[in-house]
Amino acid sequence: MILIDEPLMFAFVAFWIIWMAIFKTPPGQWLIRLCEGPLMTFARYIDFHVMKLAAFFVWVSTNPVAAMRIKGKEVKLKVEQPSITPEKAAEYERDLEEIHKMQPQREPMVRLNIGTALLLILVFIALYLLSMFIGRWLAP
């Protein structure tokens, strides 16, 4: 095995040098072009989408609730797409455009008002009482 492997290697180096001496350009241009062309395009495509995914997370994280709402609208529009009539196509395009422009707003500094908080607590009490009573009724 070693006997085959290493002579082949040296043979290639010799071939490369001779080729260079004669043609003044490295052999295997097709491979280099293949790598520079399709392969790199593919790699960049993957990279682009990964970065887009990361950027999406950053975008969502500025205000998750608002971002989710915007995304929801976008998905809804996309679902509706097949049923769009030609007349409405322009309107649809505009809607889509608008949604793409929407950015989640930054959260205001004081977000919680007391009413919400109280409601939350009341809901918890109600839940608790409910579970208590159900528990008692169901108890043998």
């Binding site: 095995m1 070693i2 492997d5 082949l8 290697m9 290639f12 180096v13 295997g28």
Partner: peptide, 29 residues
């Protein structure tokens, strides 16, 4: 040598190393 020791299908893997080395030549030379 390690490929050879491993035996089986792996004893053909030196050719992959060879291809790798050839590619090395193609971008370093």
């Amino acid at each position: 040598h390690g490929c050879e020791e491993a035996g089986g299908a792996i004893s053909y893997f030196p050719y992959i190393l060879l291809i790798a080395a050839i590619l090395d030549v193609m971008y370093f030379f």
